[in-house]
Design a protein around this nucleic acid. Sequence first.
DNA 1: GTCTATATTGGGATAGAC
DNA 2: GTCTATCCCAATATAGAC
Lengths: 215, 215
Amino acid sequence: MTQQAKVQVEKLTAANTRDKILDAAEALIVEHGYAGTSLRAITQRAGVNLAAAHYHFGSKKGLFSAVFHRRIEPVRQMRQQALETLIDSGKPYTVKDVIRTFLAPLYQVQNTDLLDTLPSLVGRIYGEPESVSKPILEAEFSEIADRYQAVFCGLLPRVPAEEIRWRFHFMIGSMIQTLRFQSPLGMAVDREQFINNLDRLVEFTAAGMQQLRDG
Amino acid sequence: MTQQAKVQVEKLTAANTRDKILDAAEALIVEHGYAGTSLRAITQRAGVNLAAAHYHFGSKKGLFSAVFHRRIEPVRQMRQQALETLIDSGKPYTVKDVIRTFLAPLYQVQNTDLLDTLPSLVGRIYGEPESVSKPILEAEFSEIADRYQAVFCGLLPRVPAEEIRWRFHFMIGSMIQTLRFQSPLGMAVDREQFINNLDRLVEFTAAGMQQLRDG
DNA sequence: GTCTATATTGGGATAGAC
DNA sequence: GTCTATCCCAATATAGAC
């Protein structure tokens, strides 16, 4: 059973208290952010007791970290595997290929509920104050980001590393904006439209990443 | 006396209670966001009474709107004037020229304090939950955004309007990411570095905006 | 592992004196 | 226009029974 399929089951059943809390917290954080979401609102929505949240997660911050880790860790694994598979294939690959391994995992979620929440959740973390977002981003994201930047440097040997860093940053920005905008709260996302926007995003960011100075 | 110069003076003196509250609120919102900032913390930092905030702004949301309007309105005016000047000049202009009129006002603030706060403030509003950000963005931003999209459509007649809309969106995303990242809290921003990043951002987004399909 | 009950603190908002 | 004092509610967190 793949990790992804397992998440699906969790999402559909939410058998135990711990997962009920995670599900409720996730939905509310997507809508109102960290500071705007109370443990009371979470446990009420989950149909469990307030004290249970502290028992399972220790604190509000602990719960917050767990909510993000549950969703982002599978994405990280998919990115890493797709990237290394591409590189180890021995065949030549382009900037666009690499970008696609980075962005596609966010769009390849099978479960419809996750299709709504995962992009919004990723978009949300970048909007949080640094005191909230920085520990999460460093734990979940910094290693794979370094790896991608190194790969881009290899593909674009004439572009300085610092310039690559900035272009990577612009790419993240375009991604976040797309994630936040295309699945606004409660709006069902049409799957075909969603995939079209992945293509648009890849084209846009690839053009910027490998830009040639043309005046 | 230009509006910009007037803002400078306000910022340096903060003579009256109303401006002291705005200044304090601005600094705290940049750091902790809307939900993470209390009226008590604001008025304490401003050295004024809690009730004064309600007297001048009616509510927390009213204060929030005022904080953003004070900074964003001059930017809107600068963008509008630069854009119409470019178009009315009669000379031909490029996508890059237009993008520069959009992005440059954020970088052309004279006052050093504003150079720190304005970008962070603009970056912040996009990270807020929709219930907070939407009213602000629609009031301050939607008209000028429509205008720019129309100009891009005129410059790129072969690109469908919907595609332009998405590319404009990606551009905003890159902008926000840059604004949020390059003036982190309390960090003094080196002016030369700051301007360099404007050039990078213009190049990146122009490449994506006028991209040609090259496989 | 889950509950009730509560400690403690902080939140937005307002009445009314000056 | 600014203050003190207060209302009322919500927040995180924990103690202790079951």
